[in-house]
């Protein structure tokens, strides 16, 4: 305990303040990004109460003029103005990326849990689950999307009830593709976690008269799903990025919009640099969020042996 009372060295104090400055910058950047996204969405949803729909939240000319007045930044003023001009499109694309990722992830989870459970505890169904997982993980996601969109022409079968949710039916096809594919990957992560739940937990559940299924539901899943969070976060992060494949079946998400802007303006480097920052913001948010979730649902002693 001596170390707890020892005064921090200068180096430690510098490192500590570096960390807090870093954290502050990260929080500020996050607030700016999500603020921009949210305000853009509200503005569009309310039919342009703040600025006309399709216009940037701040006038590009003003940004350009401001930067031009700052000596070190003057050289980038024109680029900045251009990027600001593109923000309405980028905001719409980013928003769609968020929705596609979130919905696919949630629906995929609903499928993944039973898949993982049957894989670990089923007999015949374990083989069905294995076949599904291997098929979906073993073939290219882009090929799966092409089969759903071009091959099966699923966009024309989207039920009327939900076809109006998005501007175009093809968004549902993308969500279906990511759900089915993501479920296979999520199931793999959850399966690994379920297998690490001790056998004695199941024995104890059965011994008080719970059925096998009840034991899985009340004992195995609450523990296994907590174990699964860190590796499951990988799937979350991957899905954000490979949702860009939806662009190849004409879903106007972030990548698709960026590609269109670039094709029209030939500003490839700049546009994809900015787009990269958008994806980075989404990914960082996702991983920070999952760390929070993990802390929130943590139980003393549970999973401690896994961290060793």
């Amino acid at each position: 305990m001596a170390s707890a009372t020892r005064p921090a060295t200068v180096r430690e104090r510098v490192a500590e303040s570096d960390r807090s400055v870093g954290r502050l910058l990260l929080v500020a950047a996050g607030a700016l990004f999500w603020g921009w996204l949210a305000v853009s969405w509200v503005n569009r949803w309310l039919g342009g109460v703040l600025v006309p729909v399709g216009q940037p939240l701040v006038p590009p000319a003003a940004v350009e003029a401001t930067l031009a007045g700052i000596p070190v930044l003057a050289a980038y003023a024109a680029d900045a103005g251009f990027v600001v001009e593109m923000t309405p499109d980028l905001a719409r694309g980013t928003w769609l990326t968020v929705v596609i990722t979130g919905v696919s992830l949630a629906l995929g989870f609903v499928i993944a849990v039973p898949l993982a459970v049957t894989r670990v505890y089923g007999r015949f169904s374990a083989w069905v689950s294995l076949a599904y997982t291997e098929l979906l993980r073993g073939t290219p996601l882009l090929a799966q999307l092409f089969v759903l969109y071009y091959g099966l022409n699923l966009a024309s079968y989207v039920p009327d009830a939900v076809s109006g949710v998005f501007a175009r039916e093809v968004v549902w096809v993308a969500i279906l593709g990511f759900t089915l594919n993501g479920a296979a990957y999520q199931a793999e992560y959850i399966r690994g976690a379920l297998e690490s739940v001790e056998e004695g937990q199941i024995t104890a559940g059965r011994a008080i008269g719970l059925s096998k299924l009840e034991t899985i539901y009340h004992v195995v899943l609450p523990q296994g799903l907590r174990y699964a969070i860190p590796s499951w976060t990988n799937e979350f992060v991957y899905l954000i990025k490979y949702s860009s494949l939806a662009g190849f079946i004409t879903v106007p998400e972030l990548y698709y919009r960026a590609d269109q802007i670039a094709a029209e303006t030939f500003r490839y480097t700049l546009i994809f640099l900015v787009t990269g920052v958008m994806y980075l913001a989404l990914v960082l948010t996702a991983s920070k969020l999952m760390v929070r979730v993990e802390e929130r649902v943590a139980i003393p002693g549970l999973g401690a042996e896994r961290e060793e």
Partner: peptide, 20 residues
């Protein structure tokens, strides 16, 4: 068997308490 186990309590060497 679930009915049987309802009426027969068991205590384990390794406790096997539900960890969560």
């Amino acid at each position: 068997v679930d009915e049987l186990r309802r009426e027969v309590g068991m205590v384990f060497q390794g406790f096997n308490l539900f960890a969560h």
